[in-house]
């Protein structure tokens, strides 16, 4: 297994410019590339695979330059969105393909992978007859059989139901940790990103917005996109925060914390307004949805939407009801960067 590093990587793609991007991934490690549609995530993966020419920068595998190598000579296996399985071959023949290319006649490893990835029941079937989860297993197995020096997976586990997704996530995690394959995934799913990736790279409009530990991303998201991705239910721009602060004086200390890109905070707990309620912020209920521990309440404060949690012990609030909520300054994160606002 090898360590890969990209420095100042730039791709020009008919009016769209990605980079410069710096990236480093070592054996047994994985990176999640995040960002809105059109941020350049797929372009980055394709450039690493050699499917897209880079105009500047360097790409090295264990110090050896890879930037000008053809895709088949890089040892970086790319799994495209849609998985790129061969429709005219059975699952087993798909898995066998990388072995055939190397002229390996021994099917022992093939059988091992089929067994290990749970492909045995459908090994003789063509991809068109397989479920999404089964196809992902075949794609993962096929990539592994190519002895990848780097695994590049564009949106794994996208159209799979949550239960099957967890199983597959385990399969992928194993490829990274047990087989020590350095991995870069593009994903829109935070569970996939946060379970699989040690580090995250957030792109917006072709530029790097964040590069660092996944934990740091969640603790202090750089912009609105990263905040929503990390699970912050409330993301306000500066203007929104000011409006809310003007309408509701108890919120003012909170508003003072807004950075250039606004602020974000997890859904605060809400409860029936006590009387007198002078120091508590109040919101008006718009609609609510049942949740495991009570209700998720969408409310407004000063015309700005806010998501709250409502405990079941109080009984459900009704639309138009005023509710009070508690919010501590520790929960507020300032967003340093404008942009990335798309939900």
């Amino acid at each position: 297994m090898s360590a890969w590093s990209a420095e100042g990587l730039v791709v020009d793609r008919g009016g769209f410019r990605l980079g410069p991007v710096n990236l480093e991934v070592r054996p047994g490690e994985s990176i999640a590339v995040l960002g809105r549609s059109g941020a350049g995530k797929t372009t980055l993966l394709r450039a690493l695979a050699g499917l897209e020419p880079m105009v500047r920068g360097s790409l090295r595998r264990d110090g050896e330059s890879m930037g000008r190598r053809a895709p088949e000579r890089r040892g970086a296996v790319y799994v495209p969105p849609g998985l790129g399985l061969f429709p005219h071959r059975t699952a087993r023949q798909n898995l066998r393909y990388p072995l055939e290319l190397r002229g390996a006649g021994d099917d022992r490893r093939l059988d091992e992978v089929i067994e290990r990835f749970g492909i045995t029941p459908f090994a003789h079937r063509r991809p068109s007859t397989l479920s999404e989860g089964e196809k992902e297993r075949v794609a993962a197995g096929r990539a592994l059989l190519a002895d990848p020096g780097l695994l590049l997976w564009d949106e794994p586990l996208t159209s799979i139901d949550p239960a099957a997704r967890r199983d597959l996530l385990e399969v992928l995690t194993e490829v990274v940790r047990t087989d020590h394959v350095p991995t870069v995934v593009v994903t829109h799913d935070s569970e996939t990103a946060f379970t699989l990736a040690d580090r995250c790279l957030v792109l917006d409009g072709g530029s790097t917005v964040f590069a660092g530990q996944t934990d740091d991303l969640v603790r202090s998201p750089p912009d609105a996109f990263a905040a929503r991705f990390s699970g912050f239910e409330n993301v306000w721009t500066v203007a929104e925060a000011e409006l809310a602060g003007r309408a509701c004086p108890p919120l003012r200390p909170l508003v003072a914390r807004a950075g250039a890109g606004g602020l974000c905070f997890p859904a605060p707990s809400a409860f029936p307004p006590p009387s007198p309620h002078a120091d508590l912020p109040l919101a008006t209920v718009r609609r609510l949805a049942p949740a495991p521990s009570g209700y998720t309440v969408d409310a407004v404060v000063g015309g700005i939407g806010i998501r709250l949690r409502w405990d079941r012990t109080h009984g459900p609030p009704r639309g138009g009801d005023p509710v009070a909520f508690g919010i501590s300054l520790d929960e507020i994160r300032s967003l340093g960067r404008t942009g990335g606002g798309g939900s």
Binding site: P71, V77, Y78, G82, L85, F86, R102, A143
Partner: peptide, 21 residues
């Protein structure tokens, strides 16, 4: 599917092999 052809390339197929296979 262009994805299948590109996948073949990164699995180790030359342009000619990807075309043929």
């Amino acid at each position: 599917d262009a994805g299948a052809v590109e996948a073949a390339r990164t699995l180790g197929a030359s342009p000619a092999q990807a075309f043929q296979h």
